[in-house]
């Protein structure tokens, strides 16, 4: 899958929290149209890597490039502005607010009339219409009412709302942190299908997961993170799940060609 230039890449990224080094000269590459899984043991620095890419933390050293251009994200807003959407493990939804409010949080649509121009009124009707469209596109219209509070939804539906939000607004990259961790069998299946739907529209996806069957099912390549850096990148067709687990826990040395990638 290395035929083209990476859409999103990182080189020598370092992040320290006081004395703890979370990222130790880590590299990262995401190619257009692929699903890249990121796996690693607890504390390997997966979350820090993802947060660095999505603007939630600022890196101490190194460089992140989007479509070949160096970028520096000071906030999640900045990364979003550049076309990188993230579905956090916590989902980052406001439970008491409606589905439509949540989908448009931080990018509300202003009304076109005087009320909108002079008094900053938001266009509720438009936001609800678009939210409904986006949810139906992803087959999520089991949700009856777009104005219902997110806290009244099931776990899978909430995940669906968060994925739909990212897919609707992500123009370049979608990052998903443990999207199936809190879900049942059926709901996980639905989210995996959603992930493939999103890729089918041409958006590359970074998928962080502990669930090996899910990773091996949907990923095109697997980035193995260990001790704050990229250990290797493997092809799920060439390696087994137990290989992957052995690499990420340090039980087995990765093959030479994989570490060079």
């Amino acid at each position: 899958m290395t035929q083209s230039e990476p859409i999103l890449s990182a080189r020598n990224v370092v992040k320290r929290y006081g004395r703890v080094t979370a990222l130790d000269h880590a590299d990262f590459d995401l190619y257009p149209g692929e699903i890249l899984a990121v796996i690693g043991d607890n504390g390997a620095g997966k979350s820090s890597l993802i947060k660095a890419l999505s603007g939630a933390i600022q890196i101490d050293e190194g460089e992140i490039r989007l479509e070949g251009n160096p970028v520096r994200f000071n906030s999640p807003m900045a990364a979003r502005g550049a076309g990188i959407e993230t579905v956090y493990q916590t989902l980052a939804l406001s439970p008491a607010l409606s589905i439509a409010d949540n989908m448009f949080m931080g990018r509300e649509i202003r009304r076109q009339d005087l009320l909108g121009r002079w008094f900053k009124a938001i266009d509720r009707a438009a936001m609800e219409r678009i939210a409904r469209e986006k949810l139906s596109e992803l087959g999520l219209m089991t949700i009856q009412n777009i104005t219902q509070a997110v806290e009244t939804l099931s776990g899978g539906q909430r995940q669906g709302v968060a994925v739909a939000r990212a897919a609707a607004f992500g123009s370049k990259v979608v990052i998903m942190d443990e999207p199936t961790a809190a879900l049942g069998v059926k709901e996980s299946r639905r989210v995996l299908e959603l992930i493939q739907d999103v890729r089918a529209r041409g958006l590359p996806i970074v998928l962080i997961s502990h669930n090996m069957p899910h990773v091996f099912e949907v990923a095109d390549r697997i980035h193995v993170h260990r001790l704050g850096r990229r250990l290797c990148v493997i092809d799920p067709k060439d390696h087994s799940m137990s290989d992957a687990v052995a690499f990420m826990t340090g039980a087995k040395k990765p093959p030479q060609e994989a570490t060079a990638a």
Partner: peptide
Amino acid sequence: EAAELSGIR
């Protein structure tokens, strides 16, 4: 936290 992550300053 959620508000911050969904892009609100």
